[in-house]
Design a protein around this nucleic acid. Sequence first.
RNA 1: UGGGCUAUGGCCAAGUGGUUAAGGCACCGGACUUUGACUCCGGGAUCGAUAGUUCGACUCUAUCUAGCCCAGCCA
Length: 548
Amino acid sequence: MKKMEISHFINTIIEEDIRTGKHKRAITRFPPEPNGLLHLGHARAIITNYTMAKNHGGYFNLRFDDTNPVKEDISFVEAIKKDIAWLGCEWKNLFFASDYFEEMYKRAVLLIENGKAFVDDLTADEIKEYRGNLTTPGKNSPYRERTIEENLKLFKNMRDGVYPDSSKVLRVKIDMTSPNMNMRDPIIYRIQRAHHHNTGDKWCIYPMYDYAHPIEDAIEGITHSLCSLEFEDHRPLYDWVVKNCEMENIPRQIEFGKLRIVGAVGGKRYIKQLVDGKKVMGWDDPRLITLSGLRRRGVPSEAITDFIHALGLPKSQGETEIDMLDQIIREHLASTAPRTNAILDPLKLVIDNYPEDKVEYLEAENNRDNEELGTRLIPFSKYVFIEREDFIEQKPNKKWKRLALGIEVRLMHAYFVKANSIVRDEKGNITEVHCTYDIETKSGSGFKDRKPNGNIHYVDATHNLPAEIRLFDDLILENMGKDIPYVDKVNPDSLIIKNGFIEENMDPQVGDRFQFTRNGYFCVDKDTTKDLLVFNRIVSLRSSYKKK
RNA sequence: UGGGCUAUGGCCAAGUGGUUAAGGCACCGGACUUUGACUCCGGGAUCGAUAGUUCGACUCUAUCUAGCCCAGCCA
């Protein structure tokens, strides 16, 4: 694997902080909310935080940001941990934001004592109205000037469950006329009677993200809190909370651009819609760019980390083509995945001059670039399957490097065969191609008297294993317009199932990866049963073949 | 019409006043080939626009344009 040079603006900032003695090392974190699974976009945040800590003598924490029990589900916690571990980003500490509820409460009391927070009785609609909008400033709440004593009592009552849900909130006093909406006296606590996976029914008030997050970072001694660009406008508030809550450690939030993939469903909420709407097999559907989906598809996690590093860490807002990831995946698999033959769309070839009951076993390398993977024996008999697309009746032009009537090709690892005639069914479809082989041309014999019109692969028709082979295409039809929800734009052909055959000489386990000759890289899917192998195509091979 | 951020070839992206403007992906040629794979050769941008500063600007200044984000008691 190529070593990636890491030199982006955040790396520069951290190096500078260490050089000037501001910090001795970088301590970072990744703070997912357990309300869904992680996707490729999160991989940038995870890998960036992890790598910066690792490269700068520090460590990386995993912290579940579980401050809103109505939206969260403990079941996602284990799945998220599995994804992050899969990426190889080891966390030093595993924390939950809810571990800090008591501390957060105390800091809120401190804010009230210092006259910096107040309990507001305005309704949600009134708060919205008082907030103003993008172009007009907001107005102070009529409750803003309550006395410290009254606020203290009210806030304690909020905690003690005296008031109904949503009847009061705790707000911080900043500036209702700020052009930054986040600074218009933001709400930091709401009343919400909901069972929390960690704290049970202990609390009926929960802190808001903008208040909780900086405190979490500060408590953990995070030095650099790396997140995506949409939190840029929140940074002044983040800094305000750290300062006014009198936190000892002062973390710094730095934002980078979000990773978007052309044509992919990005964003947890959209993926969730597809999962909940049963439009996909689940969070781990191989057509999804969730980490679990990519893993199930067969993508090596190293390819993902390489991909993230290769992209760099810009603040610009582009859309990356998935081809870049595909090529990195191929590079990872090229020398590690054993080759085998598989026929996805079989066409029977009958070798007329080959003995009826004979079966030969021909030796083949499992990977020409990696001798350690050894060799295998491939059966060969009078009846073999080739790909239907590898045969055409009349060779159309000199570019055609496959089989055609009167044309001779090599069956890889076996012999030259020449097609002589075809058999059709009553509908006119070709059901068999009859040909003759030349025993002189056996693979490995060194035969050089003439060149075949190409090399095609085969699977013996009498000795093989049937397999279900799944091919994937874009999940979403983009040409339907961007106002249509994803659930209504699912490409019906995004999953193509082929019932094909693979070599009989294997006993693949779920997760094993192979290169199917000329068809791409494939991985054994978890749907495999003892009766039927199921493969996912991870990526196709590149092809320079152009029709015409 | 408020604020924040961004703008280098089809895509991603180096570059921080003087370089023939890196590299990867994609694409197009060609060589090689028992995978139309791999590998190998070759191909293309004047840097959102305009006006300045300067001997000299992708890099500095001003103005403009375009895109993204912000008006949850979500994160």
